[in-house]
Write a protein that binds this DNA or RNA. Sequence first.
RNA 1: CGGGGCGUAGCGCAGUCCGGUUAGCGCACCUGGUUUGGGACCAGGGGGUCGCAGGUUCGAAUCCUGCCGCCCCGACCA
Length: 490
Amino acid sequence: MAKLTARSEDYSKWYNELVVQADLAQHSDVKGCMVIKPYGYAIWENMKDVLDRKFKETGHQNAYFPIFIPKSYMSKEAAHVEGFAKECAVVTHYRLKNDPETGGVVVDPDAKLEEEFIVRPTSETIIWNTYRGWVQSYRDLPILINQWANVVRWEMRTRLFLRTAEFLWQEGHTAHATKIEAVDEARKMLEVYADFAEGWMAMPVIKGVKTESERFAGAEDTYCIESLMQDGKALQAGTSHFLGQNFAKAFDVKFQSKEGSQEHVWATSWGVSTRLMGALIMTHSDDKGLVLPPKLAPLQCVIVPIHKGEEQLQAIHEKCTPLIDSLKEADVSIKFDDDDSKRSGWKFAEYELKGVPVRVAIGPRDMENGTVEIARRDTGEKTLVKIEEASAHIQKLLTAIQDNLFNTAKDYRETHITKVDTWDEFKEVLDEKGGFVEAHWDGTAETEDKIKDLTKATIRCIPLNAEKEDGKCVLTGNPSTQRVLFAKAY
RNA sequence: CGGGGCGUAGCGCAGUCCGGUUAGCGCACCUGGUUUGGGACCAGGGGGUCGCAGGUUCGAAUCCUGCCGCCCCGACCA
């Protein structure tokens, strides 16, 4: 296996090589689409399981809506169609036929659809068209539904996990009787995302709200969690939208209130995608390969025996059995790697590439001394431990690794949030240091645009916890009441 | 859509400029043996419509024409 390109040499190349070499995903024969390989999918499944549990704990149910959306639905909400029209895949026919000339198949021109279908880029339209039939009374509300699905956005340029033409995600779509309830829902789900990102992915995030120009197409407010990657670029890790009554009005979803009046429903939608895989990789991994937080690692601990011959292997396996049983008992996923076709050194490198948090090595020396060598993936540190104490040690270590990954990422982020007050500083920090820049902004889309043109940086968010502070816009000098976060972003 | 690069064994590549034995190398794979505390070694072996379609030629991976596909950088975006 070839060595990975160092991050310092070419971050983007490192990322691409890591995804492929760690066996997470590969490019498919279809442009812009990826094959998620079993190891990558196992990580996604772990993420999905945690999120799904959290959604259910907050009162949501899963449902499923069609992948195809009648074209006319897309145009019912003006901002929405504007946002997605340029990247929609369209189904125009429903049949193929044999082509006598080539021996292959061609689209049957007689099988043209009356109305084309859009392959969903997101499901607001078809879901709100369905909700119309579900809601008559305030007693039918709220509707709290999540869908796990694939969506298609015909992106011009794609990158494994970060931006693919087809991706997997979840999309929550809720309907409420009041504005305040809908806003609360959107905020609540933002908290769920933030809690997941920090507690499971060990990825610190900043909660904020998007500016008008960065807002979801059709939303009144877009809340987001923003994280910082190792190369100093920001990544939007999840969004939760307060949709107002826009979709209810577009799809005529009304209910009769307690008082007897007809009211439009208030809506939210929220989603995270396989992009989180990219975020996870770029938050923790190093030049040796993937680094996974124990809470999401498909394999948390691997035991590599070092042996000569079948007999020794058997003896080592027997010696390890109590340790393996004890770890299983404690719900630690554990593998005893008795594959005899690979040498131990090869295995060490391989498990490091795959980000397994804890590696245990045991050979003749340890058999004699009653020890095992325990190595942690995050720091590379190795410790000799009595085999009887190994299980407890490993369990503590998994927690320590989870914490260390979060703290390291958080330290990095804290040192990469820079307060600036002048335009020169602003440019200098973006060019040389990267990360988030905290600066005053005059609140206009024109200024935002201009800054983007000049520096490629966008306003990632207006942080929810930002203190009010009078200042002057970093570009125009116009008055501002609070700082916002700028960064170059994925 | 602009700029760059590439298409030859499962993967990574050389060979193409300047046409000429049986298309080669590394990794991977198969067999046997020796090995095993940080990506082992030796010996033997299998695997190719050289992206596709035409053309030039005694002869094309190599020259000409057309087409297709992918990757990277930018504009667009979760």
